[in-house]
Amino acid sequence: MTVFNRRIWRLSKAETRNQITGLLFVSPWIIGFLLWTAYPLASSFFYSFTHYDFITQMRWIGFRNYVEIFTDDPRFWTVVYNTVYYVGISVPLGVATAFLMANLLNTRLVGRSFFRAIFFIPSIVPAVCSAMVWLFIYNNQYGVINNFLRAMGRPIIPFLSSVTWSKPSLIVISLWGQGAAVVIFLASLQDVPRSLYEAATVDGANAWHRFWHITVPMSSPIILYNLVMGLISGFQTFLMPYLLTNGGPMASTEFYAMHLWRNAFELFRMGKACALAWIMLITVVLLTLLIFKTSASWVFYGGER
């Protein structure tokens, strides 16, 4: 504190003016941060120890929400399982396929920007619209895939109405919406210096060696970024299952964020919803830290960084 004060004390007139100007310019964000991020986070932590339903008086109940979630909420472990299943498959699979697709696009290819547009557009279409199309495609009676199967005399696939198929069907939709990651990967691949590949070719490296020893290490920071971002958004998966299956069948697509949603906006258990949110926040932060910690061994920050 004293160090800080002394520094402020020593500011020249011009520096003081800059200090004030800078803070004034940034003040919208500072106020917004306090109003829409810091205060909500703090109050959510407080609410997580209360019973709060807008009707009765809010009352302090200590750890009862947390105890209930872990011991007396049969849905909780189901949604944890569903979410881990979904995130555990869709995120690594999504990052891997996006990376491979970007690599395909990065080769000598006629119509590269055309293909890039094809892969990217599904990710910008309004989510409700994609939900309507997939609902139609996956339909047991009129869906295009099942219509073909029926025409061939094969049994239909109950994409959204069977416990075994519902989660894989949603994962397919998430892979379809991977376009942004493809574009990010492609941009990073184009930044890899050509000279590295040329040098390796001179040294007799084949395509596989070049991919494994140059492309992958040079892209590892972006792989890490996509992995972390995929994880954070994967844990919040809400809209597609909400619109397509509403959590069914047999709660097989009831994910963590939907459970939180129902507690907050259907049961009006704001306190418990906040407790659920804090459990998720802590899990996501711990997982992210874990990934960053282990990343030291596989992420390569080369070149100018």
Partner: peptide, 8 residues
Amino acid sequence: PYTVTMVP
């Protein structure tokens, strides 16, 4: 995550 600030 937005779900964390959604309720407060």
